[in-house]
Design a protein around this nucleic acid. Structure first.
Lengths: 212, 212
DNA sequence: CGATAATTTGACCGCTTGGTAAAAGCTTAC
DNA sequence: GTAAGCTTTTACCAAGCGGTCAAATTATCG
């Protein structure tokens, strides 16, 4: 008699881990393409190769799936910013931050779109994460940038808007991929566009931040 | 006996114009907040102060509302790019393009989010516009930028990625408004953030594009 | 006014949706 | 093996959805 949803026992089964992984992977596909409201449990269950009630055996609600997905993805998503090193060389730290963010846009576009969808629609489910952990991390790194600017190592600029502009330019290649490809046309829609973008962005930010 | 949906007569009524306007205005609110699938006809009808069947008297389907909204907004949205003048001074043309795009993000955030939602979800309903009119316009302006670069008036750079970066940095303040506000905190969430952003972006692009 | 067309509404339909119940099938440990 | 718990499925429900219909109401114009 399976009274409880998987997890009455403290210990998680092998099957539980496998299936939850499968569900989250499928949910990432569906949520990132359709947003929370636009995605259906049936779609996700289908993509995960199981029935709807079976999925609901592992996650109580659609929101629970989404919740766990967001939590998991958020931490990996902020990794590049966390790696921003106050003791490193300013120019190369910023350069490598741009490069890493762009690589993430290329390699994990679904994760990027998941967040974009969420924030675009008012972030009803992750407001706390934005105002808490995210803000704190950005505050910390903004201070680093400000110190660099004061020390004359990079041009004086608003560190928050610098971070926003790096986020937006890099994530653009994941979130607005369809538009980018449509505009570039077939000729430049290969993976080369990421290298072109990297070259352009590095030059833009390096020249824009150089002390003059 | 009202056999046809409004428009059997060639001439549109005063009421027709008013109500259609009202519906599109309400639909902009709802669609931009929830995306196409996430929005319901009931929500839009409510926001427009009428019943669902009444809304469907003016627009045959939900998609028809969305369609007309997109068509209308697209042309105004591209206005700043169209205004890009090949005969003008490169630096001031680019500077004023950035400023105008940022003003649009501030003054018409719903329009920006409507597109962002659409493109994020694969642009199923506007693919043709992207590959047709949009691409042609961008191609034309990219050529202008390339000529400027060849003439040594601005730094050599990939014109397409330059345009993408202007789009993304400016629209970020509309599309990711919630995140921007969460990170900046209450202190900087006033309208001042647009002036700060303008200052930052103008410096970034001007220094990044200056011939050196 | 009165007739005709334009507008609005309430009731309704078929389908999809998130979620439940209960029983059947499967694993695992003894 | 067998009993206990874990997993999966079939059948189902209530609410929400896009959209229709016909009747009621209102505006327009001679």
């Amino acid at each position: 008699m399976a009274i409880p949803r998987a997890a009455k026992t403290q210990r998680r089964t092998r099957i539980q881990e496998e299936k939850e992984e499968l569900i989250l992977e499928a949910a990432l596909d569906i949520f990132s393409q359709n947003g929370f409201r636009g995605a259906t449990i049936d779609q996700i269950a289908d993509a995960a190769g199981m029935s709807k009630p079976n999925l609901l055996y592992y996650f109580r609600t659609k929101e629970a799936v989404h919740r766990q997905l967001i939590d998991r993805v958020l931490s990996t998503w902020l990794e590049p910013l966390r790696a921003f090193d106050a003791t490193g060389d300013p120019e190369s730290e910023i350069r490598s931050y741009i490069r890493r963010k762009l690589e993430m846009a290329r390699d994990f576009p679904r994760e990027s779109r998941l967040f974009a969808n969420e924030i675009l629609q008012g972030a009803p489910r992750i407001e706390d994460e934005l105002k808490g952990p995210l803000k704190e991390l950005v505050d910390e790194k903004a201070e680093v940038i400000r110190v660099w600017a004061r020390a004359g190592k990079i041009a004086r600029c608003d560190p928050y808007h610098l971070i926003f502009s790096i986020w937006s330019t890099t994530q653009h290649y994941a979130d607005f991929d369809v538009q980018v490809r449509a505009v570039l046309g077939q000729a430049h829609s290969g993976d080369g566009r990421f290298e072109d973008a990297a070259r352009f962005l590095e030059k833009l930010f390096m020249d824009g931040l150089r002390v003059r």
